[in-house]
């Protein structure tokens, strides 16, 4: 199983729009944690699904990860993975002042033979995601962050960078290219991008 975990906060919707624009169905399951008010969950997923060929869903309890699918963490629940395969949504206290927390999601990844991980930290305040990418790096995965020039708020990417665990930093567009390069594209019979 290939797993990409993307964390974003303030300024995230615009960065994600750019990252997902024309993103093909990569050969990985994507977990997306965007800090946002709960009432925006559905419209956020809808807007994202219009950008990419990947299937975009609001994550639900016990859902199994699937390559080519973006699983968006719902507000007010921490998203953790059981055995790197099954989604568990947990009501809990805020971590790093937020729920869902990027760190909580990333720290739930476990070393497992043949699993490959990438953690991505985009724009946002404070340091959510920093411990998470350190963990992913310790598991043998890779960490990418958004660069200062394109981040509305550089705190989160910078905090991740300071861990020394980051392999690459760049614009959302270059992060998209990096994900495609890392995991490749799922074969499909029809891939048409419009817009």
């Amino acid at each position: 199983m290939n797993i990409v975990m993307i964390g974003a906060s303030t300024g995230g919707p615009k960065a994600l729009r750019s990252l997902f624009e024309y993103l093909p169905r990569i050969d990985a399951a994507v977990i997306l944690i965007q800090h946002m008010p709960k009432f925006l969950n559905v419209s956020f997923c809808k807007a994202l699904s219009e950008r990419t060929l990947m299937d975009v869903h609001l994550a639900v309890q016990d859902q199994l990860l699937e390559h080519g699918v973006v699983h968006v963490a719902p507000s007010e629940y921490h998203l953790v993975l059981a055995d790197n395969r099954r989604i568990d949504l947990v009501r809990g206290v805020k971590v790093n002042y937020v729920c869902p927390s990027v760190d909580v999601a990333m720290l739930s990844l476990q070393a497992r033979r043949d699993d490959r991980f990438v953690g991505v930290v985009l724009t946002g305040m404070a340091a959510d995601g920093a411990e998470g990418v350190r963990h992913i790096k310790n598991l043998g995965g890779m960490a990418f962050v958004q660069n200062q020039m394109t981040a509305a708020v550089y705190d989160m990417p910078h905090s991740a960078l300071l861990t020394g665990a980051v392999d690459f930093q760049g614009s959302p567009k270059s992060l998209r290219e990096k994900l495609v390069e890392t995991f490749g594209v799922l074969e499909t019979t029809t891939q048409t991008v419009t817009g």
Binding site: T10, G11, P13, P37, L40, V98
Partner: peptide
């Protein structure tokens, strides 16, 4: 911060 979607 979880109430602020963007920073202009």
């Amino acid at each position: 911060k979880d109430n602020v979607l963007d920073y202009v």
